[in-house]
Structures are given as structure tokens and as C-alpha cells.
């Protein structure tokens, strides 16, 4: 980026605006997903949430993570959820109360965590003051760099993750098999 100064600041303003849109839309769609009565509507709001989070990943320079988010989360996991949700008796589900008895506790915990994040952001002693700043020149999150880390120091966890997925496949088949004998 060797643009002139005003051009650069315009770009920064645009990126900031996009970030605030993505963050606000993520929070709003998460709230809607939790509060909607119809489970299918809930799932569609979660889809919006996943896509906006993928946008934030893009803004953070994590292109591969954004692609994985769209393909795995929005593509595979969400479709799976939708199929299962459609097995349920939807009118009966809509008539139920949406929240359990403990939801004030959960809301309090969530709000206090948000307050903690806010305090840490304003830097009033809780956040570590001296953190290493990102080097802007390094091409972060590119597929090659991630691959070098993934197959270098993280090779063993990678293999363990594949084993975990295999165990999950077998477990899901065992659990969902209808016993016909």
C-alpha cells in the first residue's frame, strides 16, 4: 500500500466502518438467533452470524480462517443442524417457553464478561500494558504460512484432530443407527 496519505486514511475509515457494521450485525444476529421462537428462523440468523464473523476474519487478515468458517460452519455444520431441526415438531416447539429458569444468571455472566472486555479495552490496569504489536509487513493468515505452522509445530495436534473426527464419525453412526433386529 504505497498510496498517498489522504487516500490511506480514507481506506482506514472505510475499514473501520466495515468492522463496526460486521461487529454490530454479528451481535444483533446472535441475539436474534437466541431469542427467535421458530428454530428454523433461529438457524438462519445463526447463518447470518457465521457469515459476518467470516467477514471479521477477513478484516483481521485471516483469509484461510474465513474460508474455513464459510465452508465448514455455514456450509456443513449449519446444514446438518437444519436437517435435524426439521425433524422436530415445529408448532409444538414454538409453543414452548424459549428460555430455561436460569437465564438471568447466564445473562449476568455474559454482561459481566462484556464489561470485563470493555475495561480491558480501555486499559485500566487489567490488560497487560506491554504487548508486542503486530508487524504489518508480514503476510499473515496466508495459506502457505498457516500450512507451515500447521504441519510444523502443530503436526501432532493435527493428527489427533483427524483421529477425533474419525471417532466422531463412528460414534455418530453408532448412535444414529436404528436397531432393526
Amino acid at each position: 500500500m504505497l498510496n498517498a496519505e489522504p487516500n490511506l486514511s480514507q481506506e482506514a475509515i472505510l475499514l473501520t466502518a466495515i468492522f463496526y457494521y460486521m461487529a454490530g450485525a454479528s451481535v444483533a444476529s446472535a441475539l436474534l438467533a437466541v431469542t427467535r421462537k421458530n428454530p428454523v428462523h433461529s438457524m438462519l440468523w445463526v447463518l447470518a452470524l457465521f457469515l459476518h464473523v467470516a467477514g471479521i476474519f477477513l478484516l483481521l487478515g485471516a483469509e484461510f480462517l474465513a474460508a474455513v468458517q464459510v465452508i465448514v460452519y455455514a456450509g456443513a455444520i449449519l446444514m446438518f443442524y437444519l436437517f435435524v431441526v426439521m425433524l422436530f415438531n415445529l408448532p409444538e416447539e414454538e409453543a414452548r417457553p424459549r428460555f430455561g429458569n436460569h437465564w438471568p444468571f447466564a445473562a449476568a455472566v455474559g454482561l459481566s464478561f462484556a464489561a470485563l472486555a470493555w475495561v480491558a479495552r480501555s486499559g485500566s490496569g487489567i490488560a497487560p500494558a506491554q504487548t508486542r504489536l503486530a508487524t504489518e509487513s508480514a503476510p499473515q493468515g496466508s495459506l502457505a504460512a498457516i500450512g507451515m505452522v500447521l504441519f510444523g509445530p502443530f503436526a501432532l495436534p493435527f493428527e489427533i484432530a483427524s483421529l477425533l473426527l474419525l471417532a466422531a464419525i463412528i460414534g455418530a453412526v453408532v448412535l444414529a443407527t436404528r436397531r432393526t433386529a
Binding site: L65, V68, V72, A76, A134
Partner: peptide, 29 residues
């Protein structure tokens, strides 16, 4: 990961996605 200039955070997020996929398979089963 972005703030600290360290790619390990992103790799960890990838593992979280993999574990979430496994959890979804077993949980929905």
C-alpha cells in the same frame, strides 16, 4: 493472533472448528 503477530492463534481456531464439527456429529446423533 493478529494483535500479537502470532499465527498459532489462527491454527488453534482451526482446531476449534475441527472439534466443533466432531461435537456436532456426535451431539446431533
Amino acid at each position: 493472533s493478529r494483535h500479537l503477530g502470532d499465527l498459532r492463534g489462527q491454527v488453534l481456531a482451526l482446531f476449534v472448528i475441527a472439534v466443533a464439527a466432531a461435537e456436532v456429529g456426535v451431539g446431533l446423533g
